[in-house]
Amino acid sequence: MTSKKITDFLLGLIKKQIFIPIAALLILVIFNLAADPSFFKITLGQNSEGFPVLSGYLITILDNASELVILAIGMTLVTAASGGQDISVGAGIAIAGSVILRVLCGTDARPETLQAPIFVAFLVGCIVSMAFGGFNGVLVSYFKIQPMVATLILFTAGRSIAAWINDNALPIVVEPVFGYFGNFIPGIPVPTPVFIAIICIIITMLVLKFTNLGLYTQAVGINSNSSRLNGLDPQFIKFITYVIMGLCVAVAGFIKVCRISSINYSVIAKDIEMDAILAVALGGNALSGGKFNMWASILGAYVIQFLTTTLFKFNVASTALPAYKAVVVIILVVISAPVFREKMSQLAKQISGARKHAAANGGC
């Protein structure tokens, strides 16, 4: 392959939106390979019940990233349509989880038997969470409130609402089947949340492929007035994206409470909204709205979790974790900025032109 073809290939690769999360992932992989190759070791062992389970840092990344991946899907649509972000998703997870536990436990915080089927509790959690998502959507789309300000209401009050739903009690579900959804199904060595995340990804991609949701969302985000002139209803489309965000929050909340079969209102999903926003940004999606790449956001979510797990691996204190993560993410987001990428593209062209000029002079 000639140097020109290599240069053209690299330029084309750099211009692709998904290049940044892929590059970030490669950097983290190389760093961990150099620092400690055992980071990538996966072992098959047994849990306390004697069932086979896979363990290792890679399994931890795939498992712990599940909720973030699901939230990144909804956050991408919200960002694309409204040009703003939903900062209430952590509080929304607390509400959804609290509702699910309320339906399952009833008025008894530690019932011996479930008061309702798990599927029914999940559906109720979805409906309530979508209603709160719709509340945010109404404020943003119909009352024209800036998204971060509109969702600040639920961000502030959400955890108190979650605690109020269960009268400030901490319900505990003793039914083992409930825990399967947040941990392992007996006989299956891969964590259940990984499968839930994959199902959500598949459903999302099918919806984007066979419906006009993605097209309409991008059209509204790029130019709301133009989309209205073309027969779309920008307000309704923005509203729908927040309802979808609510559904994603409900699924994430279900996984969260299934992991421990209980809930801690003040700690559950703490700061996860920031990671979801960073996943969208790391995917190269403009936080001002418009065109988006869902695959890039999903990959960005896994990169964020990869970074988090790497920092924990090297004993970074949990209190210092946000600072380290912020520095790395700022660098990656700056690199993914269109202005930076354009400058790099121009520099590469100048280098290529200089080489051609030198080759031409040398040939004379």
Results as ranks from 00 to 15, higher is better:
residue 161 I to G: 07
residue 189 P to A: 02
residue 184 F to G: 08
residue 100 I to K: 10
residue 105 C to T: 10
residue 167 D to Y: 14
residue 64 N to V: 05
residue 172 I to F: 15
residue 128 V to Y: 04
residue 122 F to Y: 09
residue 97 G to Q: 01
residue 113 T to W: 09
residue 130 M to P: 09
residue 144 K to L: 09
residue 101 L to P: 04
residue 169 A to F: 13
residue 75 M to T: 12
residue 190 V to D: 00
residue 180 Y to D: 01
residue 70 I to T: 01
residue 142 Y to W: 11
residue 140 V to Q: 07
residue 99 V to C: 10
residue 85 Q to K: 12
residue 188 I to G: 01
residue 68 L to K: 03
residue 165 I to E: 10
residue 190 V to A: 06
residue 181 F to S: 00
residue 154 L to E: 08
residue 100 I to H: 02
residue 79 T to M: 12
residue 110 R to C: 14
residue 134 G to K: 09
residue 152 L to M: 14
residue 100 I to P: 08
residue 131 A to D: 11
residue 130 M to G: 13
residue 124 V to E: 04
residue 65 A to E: 04
residue 140 V to P: 03
residue 168 N to W: 14
residue 176 P to G: 02
residue 107 T to P: 11
residue 65 A to K: 01
residue 181 F to T: 00
residue 190 V to I: 15
residue 114 L to W: 02
residue 145 I to L: 14
residue 132 F to L: 07
residue 142 Y to T: 05
residue 118 I to K: 06
residue 173 V to E: 00
residue 116 A to E: 09
residue 112 E to N: 15
residue 168 N to P: 05
residue 148 M to V: 12
residue 102 R to V: 08
residue 101 L to E: 11
residue 131 A to C: 12
residue 89 V to R: 08
residue 93 I to S: 06
residue 133 G to F: 08
residue 128 V to G: 03
residue 84 G to T: 13
residue 191 P to K: 07
residue 91 A to N: 05
residue 125 G to C: 00
residue 170 L to C: 09
residue 120 V to H: 00
residue 111 P to A: 10
residue 148 M to F: 15
residue 133 G to V: 00
residue 145 I to V: 14
residue 139 L to S: 11
residue 157 A to F: 10
residue 155 F to C: 14
residue 98 S to H: 08
residue 108 D to I: 06
residue 147 P to E: 06
residue 100 I to Y: 05
residue 64 N to E: 13
residue 171 P to T: 04
residue 135 F to Y: 11
residue 185 I to N: 01
residue 152 L to I: 10
residue 96 A to P: 00
residue 86 D to G: 00
residue 138 V to D: 01
residue 70 I to W: 02
residue 121 A to P: 00
residue 170 L to V: 15
residue 165 I to P: 06
residue 175 E to V: 07
residue 120 V to W: 01
residue 191 P to V: 07
residue 78 V to D: 03
residue 173 V to A: 02
residue 74 G to Y: 09
residue 66 S to V: 06
residue 138 V to G: 08
residue 137 G to C: 04
residue 69 V to Q: 01
residue 97 G to R: 06
residue 190 V to W: 10
residue 137 G to K: 04
residue 100 I to F: 13
residue 91 A to T: 02
residue 177 V to C: 04
residue 165 I to C: 09
residue 159 R to V: 02
residue 166 N to T: 15
residue 136 N to D: 01
residue 181 F to W: 04
residue 107 T to A: 15
residue 87 I to F: 14
residue 92 G to Y: 03
residue 176 P to S: 07
residue 170 L to E: 14
residue 121 A to H: 02
residue 147 P to V: 11
residue 172 I to N: 15
residue 71 L to N: 07
residue 107 T to D: 15
residue 172 I to W: 10
residue 183 N to T: 13
residue 139 L to F: 09
residue 118 I to A: 00
residue 182 G to R: 07
residue 65 A to G: 13
residue 139 L to T: 11
residue 106 G to N: 12
residue 157 A to K: 00
residue 139 L to P: 00
residue 173 V to F: 08
residue 188 I to K: 01
